[in-house]
């Protein structure tokens, strides 16, 4: 029924009116100010030094936690761009994490590509798939998008489970080669630095994006921050184009994390497409705050750290 699509939902429009519009320009200005404070530079330097030197004083277990935080932070960062900037609620980030991991694993174990090449190809593959999915899903509005993307997890889970020849079915893929060039430094150390350098590069890219023309365009359509797609359209923003772009970008983030994960752990299984990862990452984004990409590190760190502290080991004998 094409007619029905043309009719806008009256309830929706009412709600936009209900919000007191947040001054968008003010928010941008605040963000820029934040970035430029000296104290922040100092703290950033401190954090970087802490990260670089951590393998010197911490054993494999804290490093493993840091790896987990890194994976989650990258995926969450993509989601924060999507949610915080464009106002689109995706619960399907695990799909792109999984796609990245599986593409990387298949390209290296079956086609014997170099891991770093596989990582890049995986990001391209995932990005293309995400662009297709985005075009279909982002025609929807509001919270429904989150429901549909949640269902995507399930579709990919069963797809991977069924394509046994390609994906190994329920047993997954093992013996995925490591990213590290043989013999230079230990694999886990290389993975640690590689992951965190990628994470900080992506952070820098995200911060720039937030303060760019694209970032401002995205925020005008952000229903969560008082904007709206109608507003954006009136301002001459090509809403669909930007939405699909940022959706694809968030998928590429997740794909990169997924690829590094696959090469780091060495074996993967279909369960990584599970909706639990998608939900966890979304909760991290909300806990960390969606105004700035920094929130990803906060959310990932808090949730991973806390669950590990509270629920890791139940000491007792029998």
């Amino acid at each position: 029924m094409p007619a029905s699509r043309a009719v806008e939902q009256p309830g929706k429009n009412m709600k936009i009116l209900k919000h007191t519009p947040v001054p968008i320009l003010g928010q941008v200005k605040k963000t820029i100010e934040l970035r430029r404070t000296k104290v922040e530079h100092l703290i950033m330097a401190l954090v970087v030094v802490l990260f670089l030197t951590m393998p010197l004083f911490a054993g494999p277990y804290p490093l493993a936690i840091m790896m987990d935080i890194g994976f989650y932070a990258i995926v969450t960062m993509g989601l924060i761009l999507l949610m915080g900037q464009a106002g689109q609620l995706s619960l399907g980030q695990a799909v792109f994490f999984g796609l990245g991991a599986y593409s990387s694993a298949i390209l290296t174990t079956q086609h014997h590509l170099a891991p770093w090449l596989a990582l890049m190809l995986a990001a391209i593959i995932t990005g293309s798939i995400a662009a297709g999915i985005g075009r279909a899903v982002l025609r929807l509005r509001g919270i429904i998008v989150s429901g549909v993307t949640l269902v995507l997890n399930l579709i990919f889970f069963y797809l991977v489970l069924s394509l046994v020849d390609l994906t190994g079915g329920a047993n997954g893929i093992i013996n995925i080669p490591s990213l590290s060039p043989v013999g230079v430094i230990p694999d886990s150390l290389f993975d640690y630095y590689f992951l965190w350098i990628v994470a900080f590069l992506l952070l820098a890219f995200s911060l720039n994006l937030v303060n760019s023309r694209t970032g401002r365009a995205l925020r005008t359509m952000n229903i969560l921050a008082g904007g709206g797609e109608e507003t954006a359209q009136v301002l001459g923003v090509n809403v669909m184009k930007y939405k699909v772009q940022v959706f694809t970008l968030s998928a590429v983030y997740a794909s990169i994390a997924g690829s590094i994960y696959a090469h780091h752990i060495g074996c993967i299984e279909p369960e990584i497409f599970g909706a639990h990862l998608s939900l966890l990452v979304a909760i991290m984004a909300i806990v960390g705050g969606m105004a700035s990409p920094w929130g990803a590190f906060l959310g990932a760190g808090l949730l991973t750290g806390l669950t590990e502290l509270l629920g890791g080991v139940r000491v007792g004998s029998g």
């Binding site: 029924m1 029905s4 699509r5 009719v7 806008e8 939902q9 009256p10 309830g11 279909a136 899903v137 025609r139 929807l140 429904i144 549909v148 269902v151 399930l154 579709i155 069963y158």
Partner: peptide
């Protein structure tokens, strides 16, 4: 699930969707 996706592509708000 593929049926679901097909429905979405043709009728993004579901089969019965006059708001």
């Amino acid at each position: 699930l593929i049926i679901l996706m097909a429905v979405f592509l043709c009728q993004p708000r579901g089969l019965l969707s006059s708001p």
